[in-house]
Design a protein around this nucleic acid. Structure first.
Lengths: 344, 344
DNA sequence: CTGTTAGCGCCTTCAT
DNA sequence: ATGAAGGCGCTAACAG
């Protein structure tokens, strides 16, 4: 039952031999794009491969071809329960197209991203995707851009999801617009006194959402003063803590806009933990799945994740453009129970 | 700014040339484990690599070495928001040890798993992990076992997470025990009339949890009749629907045990949607992160996910055992608000 | 410590 | 339609 001698994996040559053909023919039958193999041989090769338990050695294939099939996605931090609907979307989209998918998760430090990208480069995938928001004044940005440009020069395709403004094909969200629309919606529901729970100062995603929100309020004649914008990490726990700080400041607030759903959940949970959850309305951004099981149901800006991943892959698989192209995906406000209409 | 001629990626030979050494030396300086390189040359090589933007070609490295560094994890279905704390755990554990991580997600069909494993084999990773529960009477099991045995014979390491009872190193959860403990805890809280929302008939995980639960009840003198065990898919939406069916049956129930948290969330949400959430207590299994933001806070069996991933990697990295080893990770009941004490 | 020489397994001309 | 031969980029074994 157990082979005592650590046998070696079956190679193409073994299959060819067993099938009584040359390696070249076996290769064509197994992986080659041409039809140039007689049916008899095709069948023989396939059978031989099966009895030998042959698996294509992708590494060797990649060396020979100079590039390996599939998508490699680099994400910042871990694709945890909340953060990465993108990841799930890309996995699904890649699967749908039969593309091998590889995930590389970088640390949260900007420098880690560059390192992860270089690691990814080492795999020479046809498509290299990078997910996650860009930060302003990022000292490592030139290094990142250089690594990616090199990669493209080497023949690879690069697609950025969310990292707007870099010279590569990009799928971006209409963050500003989403924030603006949310502000409009909340004002329409009757809210007047707002606070924003936002992320890291330099995060462009959160900045745009916040600015859009402020602009929306401004157009409705409401000013969002600086002390009503709280800033911390871009995650749930930070939002939980920030909400506490906000309440301690004791300023009149009837609605809180959190720049993403994970944070909105933190806000919601804090409010609940601290007694009266209904006193303040809460809205988020993203429409992640986890929202479905939360009370009150969370008002948010829904982003079409499947479409995001699909656009990204479409960009990468389509013809290379002369100029970097940017596809902007728009979200739309979904009003739920967490922001009931107010009657003045 | 943009190179017109699609240049080729820098190779080791290029680095060596620029550094004025042989490829072998460059290799040793860059990747070799030995220290056998003079400091002067080391520095020269590293610099050359930097100016050339050199990245190790992992594919070529893998071909030369016969195996590629890192962990490849095969998961059933998609690692969605709920389902896969395992994935997150493994990503983190691999990162901690500096191991490249690759994810391959198989379809939900058992045959897809075999296919995915063969795909993974093609990458020749040192470690191949498979996550996800085993199913009973699975016709594809022999094929799976064969593929994995071949892989081990070729020198790779295989670790199963959750797929108990197969002849490979395994990290399993104490599912039966967890179910038993949960039953005991609920009875201790004063509940008497139970129902179980379970998954696919053939899923071993859910079967064990259910059986353990029934056994716990039995030891407390309570019988769990067959009509109180509802079965469907192993996910939230199924649980949501099943809860409706349960209530329609109109049998006395004061507590529902769902065999995982995702399903428990479905139960909870259905109860809420249908009016009176507090009428029936709900308990789950896993303690996924998403529970933190749900009301009422969910009673569950907490599984130590970080530890699971760590054990798995430890098994794979440690010396190869003569016999397949199984590490059983135990969970413990955490009582929260969804199962308040009952006073009779 | 370093260079030379063979491969690793596969794909791709180029003939046949 | 098929086979032979060379090369992909890297590492390992063997000199020196």
């Amino acid at each position: 039952m157990n082979d005592p001698a650590p046998s070696r994996a079956a190679r193409l040559a073994d299959v060819a031999e067993l099938a009584g053909v040359s390696a070249a023919t076996a290769s064509r039958a197994l992986n080659g794009s041409d039809r140039g193999v007689r049916e008899v041989n095709r069948v023989r090769v396939l059978e031989a491969a099966k009895t030998l338990g042959y698996t294509t050695n992708f590494a060797a294939q990649a060396v020979a071809k100079g590039r390996s099939r599939g998508v490699t996605l680099v994400v910042k931090g871990m694709p945890d329960d909340f953060a990465n609907p993108i990841t799930a979307g890309v996995v699904a989209a890649a699967q749908r197209r039969g593309l091998p998918f590889t995930l590389i998760s970088a640390g949260t430090d900007p420098a880690d991203l560059v390192e992860a990208v270089n690691l990814a480069r080492g795999h020479r995938p046809e498509i290299l995707m990078i997910a996650g928001g860009r930060t302003k004044d990022d000292a490592t940005l030139p290094a990142l851009v250089e690594a990616l440009q090199r990669y493209e020069a080497e023949g690879g395709r690069v697609v950025l999801v969310t990292q707007e403004g870099l010279p590569f094909d990009t799928v971006a969200y209409a963050n500003r617009q989403g924030g603006y629309d949310m502000a409009t919606a909340l004002v329409g529901l009757g809210y007047r006194h707002f606070a924003v729970i936002s992320g890291l100062k330099h995060g462009l995603t959160q900045r745009d959402r916040t600015e859009g929100f402020a602009a929306g309020l401004a157009d409705a004649g409401i000013e969002l003063s600086a002390d009503r914008v709280l800033i911390g990490e871009f995650d749930r726990d930070a939002a939980y803590a920030l909400t506490g700080e906000l309440l301690r400041r004791n300023i009149a607030v009837d609605a809180i806009f959190a720049v993403n759903d994970a944070m909105a959940l933190g806000v919601l949970t804090f409010l609940r933990d601290s007694g009266d959850p209904k006193r303040i309305a809460v809205a988020g951004f993203d429409d992640i799945k986890a929202l479905r099981d939360v009370t009150p149901a969370l008002t948010t800006v829904r982003l079409p994740w499947e479409q995001v991943a699909d656009e990204a892959l479409a960009l990468a698989l389509g013809p290379r453009g002369d100029e970097p192209r940017t596809t902007v995906v728009k979200g739309h406000v979904i009003v739920r129970e967490s922001t009931p209409p107010v009657t003045h």
